[in-house]
Write a protein that binds this DNA or RNA. Structure first.
Lengths: 158, 158
DNA sequence: GATGAAACAGCCGAGCT
DNA sequence: AGCTCGGCTGTTTCATC
């Protein structure tokens, strides 16, 4: 993982459809060299995939929310397979604190969200829901190589 | 937005580097037709970008957490520009509930996370932090076209 | 939306540093 | 070992229907 690898990751995070040629121009090495490096990054599991982001509003998912769930430890084996196959759950994390799971979900309407919450409550346990008004930052997969490049991050203050 | 557009989005969400030819084979239309559709989807703002996802562990970001912040309404104009330029903040949402902001952050270590929380507390207000143990679902940008395809989602039960 | 031709990018092997 | 260069192959783009 040298400077060029980080540069490649950075560029691919900004535009995953960038051609090898564009990348080679930015990195000042030939395209076969870029291809070899990308291959290595994929094989070593550093690059895990290339995704397209979509404007949820425009495809009629108007409601985003965080749902936290109180789960008995033994319920996990039922909860995870269930939750993984609901496409509306875009992220689910096991966390510290009163609620053991925190999920990020997207639904066409608050009614759909409410239906889902009811199912979760009936099947698994207490929930706490926060509806999203607006998203000010969404850097998923973006900029993290940058974070590493600017020395080690953390306390840079504006 | 017809069935083919959704299919294209689905395929690009799974692999944003798929070639026009691959897409054309899957969708049973010619590659110029695919190119035109992708262009339209980009121009209409449905497709907002192509990103590469990276294994955070492997680039030494070992700690993921959710930080909630209590913010006075007037502090937002200071908070947003500040938060947007911290690369460790991968998502920040304004939400309903006791805490007005919920952020998802990644740091190399708990020490770095702690430093960051201290800055936030000093500059903005009360926080509540949940550290992530494990992530069972991470469908960011993935599968949502699917969610729409399977009729309207919500109460499909396993 | 399809087709075919031209431009372009990616791939593989040879030789270089 | 990793890089560059050249030629070949496959892909994208554009004009036309």
């Amino acid at each position: 993982m040298d400077k060029i690898d980080r540069k490649i990751i950075n560029l691919l995070q900004k535009n995953a459809r960038a051609s090898l040629k564009e990348l080679s121009k930015e990195c000042f090495i030939s395209s076969p060299a870029i291809a070899a490096r990308i291959n290595k990054l994929e094989r070593s599991g550093i690059i895990t995939g290339y995704h397209t982001s979509v404007n949820m509003e425009k495809i009629d998912f108007h409601v985003k929310a965080f749902i936290q769930v109180q789960l008995e430890p033994r319920q996990k084996q039922e909860f995870y397979p269930y939750i993984q196959q609901i496409p509306n759950v875009i992220e689910c994390n096991c966390v510290t604190g009163d609620y053991s799971e925190i999920m990020e979900v997207v639904f066409p309407s608050t009614t759909d969200l409410d239906d889902f919450i009811n199912i979760i409550q009936q099947r698994f346990g207490k929930t706490s829901t926060q509806i999203v008004f607006s998203t000010s930052v969404d850097h998923r997969g973006v900029k993290l190589a940058a974070a590493q490049e600017i020395s080690k991050p953390s306390k840079q203050n504006n």
